[in-house]
Computed example of a mutant assay.
Amino acid sequence: MFHFKMVARAATLSLALVPGLALADMVTITDIAGRKVEVNTPVKRVILGEGRQIYFTAALDTDNPFGRVVGWRDDFQKADLDGYNIYLKKFPEMADIPTFGGMKDGTFDIEQAVALKPDVIIMNTEAKAATEESGYIEKLAKVGIPLVYIDFREKPMEHTDESMRIIGQLFGKEDRAEEFVTFHDEQIARVTDVLAKHADVKKPVVFMERAGGYSDDCCMSFGNENFGKMVELAGGINMAKDFIPGTFGTVNPEQIIASDPDQVIITGANWELYVPGGNWVGVGPGADPATAEKKLAALMERPAFTGIKAVKDGNVHAIWHQFYNSPYQFVAVQQIAKWLHPDLFADLDPDATFRELHERFLPVDYHPGYFASLKSGS
């Protein structure tokens, strides 16, 4: 250990003698879990605890979103195949980044992580319990690797801005992060400000089905956070909040029939690598709308949905699942508001908002296909 410290100190002194080379600053970052973590910033080598964290990396390191990434979880391709292929086409080097399993399922390889010499590991808060139980934080601390928690999934409407600011600190991109946060909040305000002026507007009851058709089970949904909170922000009543105490849970078919929701919104994506040929609705970048609508209609033939008001009126929609785990939720809030209150939001164009996000913050072109609806003209 003494030898290691001496070598590290000598290396630091040598770097200090190189003209124009800025040394990293040791800063204390308070992560989403409230932990105070010391990190040398800006970080140069990052392990992403989830591959879909590239959604925020790309918004800050737009020119080179994989430049800092030395390892990541192997979920991006499986969970968002269309998005993965778009990034792969522009950044083929991403296929060579070492992949990991997850903390929650116990397949994270800590020895592999240490060998990659990361300056920081960024994890989602849902992995916190598993990380603590396995002693990963202590093991990493012994070799000088800090772990920072962020959250775009458990309480995204509460934690997205703070998470982006944390990542901005880590990357030395505070101004860029603040620019994103401002855009994010302005876009949500385009919905909430209008609804505030129409406090007497009738709020439709909405059933949000999480990953409908992914399995034969019915029906996963959201409590009073994530897509459930997005529904409330968009001027709706989240049906499942009365049955699900946390962020995620299940509602049985009888409850859906009894509640008779005015609107149904199902999340989906291209999950061909997870469930080949499944009944899921493959909305996402470049998705074919006719195929998505056909699969969406088929899901409404399940016993929980036949005969309910939403189906009778054609108020059945599909939305890209990954809005639930990225800093792009404001696009979903706009689209849901437009479905629930088409007259109030006739001039709101969520596709244009998402396109602007790509043009200002993301390194890939925008490809429509993130929404589908059985409502004529929607």
Rank of each mutant, 00 (worst) to 15 (best):
K197F: 09
Y214M: 09
D216K: 15
P204A: 09
F207W: 11
A199I: 05
R210Q: 14
M230K: 04
A199N: 10
V201M: 00
S221Q: 08
D217E: 14
V201R: 00
K197C: 02
C218K: 14
D216R: 12
K203C: 08
G212W: 01
K197V: 01
V201L: 01
D217T: 15
A211T: 09
V194I: 11
F222A: 11
A211S: 13
M230D: 01
V205T: 12
D200K: 00
D200W: 02
M230W: 10
R210D: 11
F227K: 01
G228M: 05
M220D: 15
F227Q: 02
D216E: 14
V205G: 11
V206H: 05
S215D: 13
V201C: 00
H198N: 04
R210V: 08
M220T: 15
F222M: 13
M220R: 15
M230E: 03
G212S: 10
K229L: 06
C219P: 06
G223I: 12
R210W: 07
K203G: 09
D217V: 14
M220K: 12
D216L: 13
C219A: 14
N226R: 06
A199V: 05
P204W: 04
V201S: 00
A196Q: 10
V205W: 07
D200M: 00
G228Q: 06
A211K: 05
R210K: 15
G213L: 08
A211D: 15
M230Y: 12
A196T: 07
C219L: 09
M220A: 15
G213S: 12
S221K: 07
F222W: 11
K202F: 04
C218H: 14
V194E: 06
K202W: 04
V231I: 07
F222V: 09
M208P: 01
M230V: 08
C218L: 13
K229V: 04
K229I: 04
D217M: 15
V194L: 05
G213R: 09
